[in-house]
Design a protein around this nucleic acid. Structure first.
Lengths: 198, 198
DNA sequence: CGGTCTTTTGACTAGTCTCAAGCATTGTGG
DNA sequence: CCACAATGCTTGAGACTAGTCAAAAGACCG
């Protein structure tokens, strides 16, 4: 179905996902405030994924017509939007590697690092802690694990002192350690100001 | 490192890959004739992946300066390039799902279907057959399997009549069956003329 | 023809899944 | 304000997919 507008996530958490023929869900990205989850629809006629909220969200809508006018009138803006979609692609590539090559703790640590850095970039991290309203079953769908396995991995990470959780609040006691376990190198996020440390 | 030009694959097969800190390789996409594997470098300063050839290749180079001029003078071309990168992203999303949710035969079948359809689109498929100079170890790196496992999966697929190989030539005896096993729906490739059947 | 790369095989191991149940937390209606 | 859904988290045991290690057999190339 062709969409005539894109949405901008103002607050809250969402995710982009796809379903297999067998009905299994793969979350292909987490969307945080500032993201435009369906910017691609500006140039692709058919949608090949869906978006779901993971918490209460506020969203803004922009019509494709307005976006297109903006792009023609201000090439620099067009370039910036294009660049945004290229960064999304870079993140997908990293996820392919994460799901394909890393196991258990390492895989989990990597997405947590990614989330922390991205959230930090929009000011949602304080003292290595942030609010993360993502259920274990959502993590499972994102990592290609089962909920049961995510639970066990998280427990292990807690006992190893890699993470600390209270409700939806996540705290990273030792950022360097988590980064190392997740083999995390933020280059692929292409942040302007290489704020590698969260 | 900043690149000042992009390359167009004229003939032969290549792949885009990333390495984990531990040295494991994840192939994130196969590049076929007509592809511009590093088009992204036009707007991203740092490269977060590498490209390798899998066979003899002929490539053409275009400087970013020329590309940028082309884009400013012909907005439609800029739009087309942007669209290409969006399709790449759609393929990455599908790969995340493939690696995250499908197992063994199904996972393998899916990439084979994708390759067939993409090769067909550039005229490299005849009678459900094509030349595929991809080693089992390369498939392994693309699928997140080991070479040993790829070998066993392929053997099973041969005995099941899903594929037929002689050297680097791959023939698909029963396209519908392969599509079904791989849960393959070509929507995500966003081909202009929905040539779903290869 | 020797050397290298690729494919194939076997036996054993490990990571992850499945099924199944119990517990905790939260929000809601009576 | 409490009871009870509903949802999410935790646990255990057994099964299965895929990995590891090791080596042999083919294929390709200078």
């Amino acid at each position: 179905m062709k969409r005539s507008r894109s949405c901008l996530l103002l607050s809250g958490f969402a995710c982009t996902y796809k379903l297999t023929a067998g009905g299994k869900r793969q979350i292909v990205s987490f969307n945080i405030p500032g993201d435009i989850p369906d910017l691609q629809s500006l140039h692709l006629k058919t949608l090949d994924n869906s978006v779901a909220t993971m918490s209460q969200c506020r969203v803004g809508f922009v019509t494709h017509e307005d976006l297109r006018n903006l792009c023609t009138r201000h090439p620099r803006i067009a370039e910036a939007f294009w660049r945004e979609t290229l960064i999304d692609a870079a993140i997908f590539r990293e996820w392919v590697m994460n799901v394909g090559q890393r196991e258990g703790t390492s895989r989990m640590a990597h997405v947590l690092c990614e989330l922390m850095v991205r959230l930090k970039a929009v000011g949602l991290v304080e003292d290595h802690a942030c609010d993360l309203p993502i259920t274990q079953s959502e993590f499972a769908d994102a990592l290609g694990f089962t909920t049961v396995h995510v639970n066990r991995v998280l427990q292990q990470m807690r006992t190893e002192g890699l993470i600390f959780t209270q409700g939806t609040r996540l705290t990273i006691p030792d950022w360097e350690k988590l980064k190392q376990v997740g083999e995390f190198d933020p280059t692929y996020l292409h942040l302007e100001n290489g704020q590698a440390a969260a």
